[in-house]
Design a protein around this nucleic acid. Sequence first.
DNA 1: CGTGCATCCTGTAGTGACTACAGGAGCAAG
DNA 2: CTTGCTCCTGTAGTCACTACAGGATGCACG
Lengths: 145, 145
Amino acid sequence: MEAITHSRADTFPIGELSRLTGVNIETIRYYERIGMLPAPPRSEGGRRVYDQHHTRVLAFIRRGRELGFTLDEIKALLALGGPERAPCGEVSEIATKHLDDIRTKIADLRKLERLLGQTIDRCEGGTAPECPVLDILSPEPRRRA
Amino acid sequence: MEAITHSRADTFPIGELSRLTGVNIETIRYYERIGMLPAPPRSEGGRRVYDQHHTRVLAFIRRGRELGFTLDEIKALLALGGPERAPCGEVSEIATKHLDDIRTKIADLRKLERLLGQTIDRCEGGTAPECPVLDILSPEPRRRA
DNA sequence: CGTGCATCCTGTAGTGACTACAGGAGCAAG
DNA sequence: CTTGCTCCTGTAGTCACTACAGGATGCACG
């Protein structure tokens, strides 16, 4: 097994970019198609040739996704300067809105967790005459207005 | 087999079912198409005619979705007896797995909340020389130091 | 009995963020 | 030259809906 070495030019194909950033090859091409990632130059054979700049942008996108930002939010963040510097105000506005969303989601999930957890407990305690999980799933049908 | 109050003609069209259950008309038709909801009989003019049975099944599906179950999970639950009775064991197995997923999600979101919250705070405290939100988004710490 | 309008029908396409092929071309090693 | 890997384009599938377009039906009102 020979080590994969590429030239001093510091450019690499899509597979290498994928390995460097942990982003799926298909996803990289998808990002290019929807304009998230700038289209790189091509080799003579028509292959995409990337460099460090792409690595940084793609890593930025990936990190943003991990933090739960939508691609549109990340696009906005990139427009505000991306991996380079940018005005704090607008950036933290997007981030704060996102944080609100996260907190709402956590609250919702916690309510769910409590309800479901208690219900399953009653199930396993064997104190219920009929399955309690199915009970919470069967609400009273609403009366006609 | 006992029928469900057919004495008076309490059947209704899709719009009424939608109102009764709070499920979008388009979504009801979608559920029918993918086999979540049994296809109802049709009127002479070809319109769907529903009764209380459909209301109960659809309300069950809706409640399941609110609780974050996937349609496939709900389908399994329905197969286990749906709004009628069913064995507790298999039901709570599905529910417990789902509860695990919820807890994982909550933990992930909490980590996110902490990181993002702290970062935005630093942003607003104005103590940072450069935008901290963009910093956590850039995994590469400003190369060429 | 006609008219208008709400409701309904089918079918298709769009959403977000990917993922999974099919079918072919490039390229380096043995 | 052959093998086998990587890469290319293009299309379609995923999940759970949602949004039309373009037409048919049903019912109240005049």
